[in-house]
């Protein structure tokens, strides 16, 4: 059911900002690598939401195409990130993000 009035852009700006901040907060407090990847997905979705809101606001399709490409890139990023995570877990038996300290050499 679409809205019958022009969308309230201020509401979507605040909502997307809050979602992005929650994602950033999650990246800062969680140590589990899988949850970190999920928080990155959350931040990507906040940006997507704002782009769709502006796209509807200006009646312009370009931003929605861009959201489509962001979803494509996020799928590729999740695949490679999770395979690196599995590799790290196999080697070190841990999913704590601080095991990457060993990369300092």
């Amino acid at each position: 059911m679409p809205t019958s009035t022009p969308i309230n852009i201020d509401f979507y700006i605040i909502l997307a900002t809050l979602l992005f901040v929650i994602g950033a907060f999650g990246v800062m407090i969680r140590r589990n690598m899988i949850v970190l990847l999920m928080c990155i997905e959350l931040m990507l979705n906040a940006v997507n939401l704002l782009m769709v809101a502006f796209s509807s606001y200006y009646n312009n399709a370009d931003a929605q195409i861009f959201v489509f490409f962001i979803i494509v890139v996020a799928a590729a990023e999740a695949t490679v990130g999770l395979s690196i995570l599995i590799l790290a877990y196999r080697q070190l038996r841990s999913i704590d993000i601080s095991i990457f300290n060993k990369l300092k050499g």
Binding site: T3, S4, S55, S56, Y57, N59, N60, Q64
Partner: peptide, 9 residues
């Protein structure tokens, strides 16, 4: 620019 129902999606 601002239309009541955007059909772009």
């Amino acid at each position: 620019d601002q239309v009541a129902v955007s059909n772009i999606g």
